[in-house]
């Protein structure tokens, strides 16, 4: 898929989608939203770029997304463990300000979902198209 219209539209839209994703992630404490929808919106921005600019460089991102994926999961574990180091139980608030951990976990989860969904999309996008008869 490469027509100038689609390319331009994809380039123009992506920054706004990413910004909206960041907004949904960071303001999950104050309004509907949070890490999961935020991460999904962020991923949709990247997916738009991949679909409109079907180039090899972008597909090579797949290996990096997987690494971010682990990083997100690991960060969640570390945030949980930090609760123990401040004297509480696993996953206790580590800061006197209550919403600190929520925002931190939101960012971690958003990173995780963003990287995971992108990796998923790239996997299915790279599959060759096979013609198959229906049953």
């Amino acid at each position: 898929m490469s027509s100038p219209i689609i390319n331009t539209a994809g380039r123009a839209l992506t920054p706004f989608i990413l910004m909206y994703g960041a907004y949904v992630t960071l303001f999950g404490v104050l309004s509907p939203g949070g890490g999961f929808p935020g991460g999904m919106i962020l991923a949709s921005g990247i997916i738009l770029i991949i679909v409109t600019h079907d180039t090899e460089e972008i597909k090579a991102l797949a290996s990096h997304t997987e690494w971010f994926d682990i990083l997100g999961a690991f960060a969640f574990l570390l945030v949980g463990l930090s609760g123990i180091f401040v004297g509480g139980a696993y996953l206790t608030n580590l800061w006197p300000d209550n919403s600190f951990m929520l925002i931190l976990l939101d960012i971690v989860v958003a990173l995780k979902v963003f990287a995971g969904t992108t990796a998923l999309f790239i996997f299915f996008f790279k599959l060759e198209v096979v013609k198959c008869s229906t049953d």
Binding site: I70, A73, F74, L77, G80, L81, I84, A89, Y90
Partner: peptide, 18 residues
Amino acid sequence: MMSHAPVFVVITPILGAL
């Protein structure tokens, strides 16, 4: 620290895997 033993039963394998 040992009072946290139950949670480490679950997360140690995950920590190792990650």
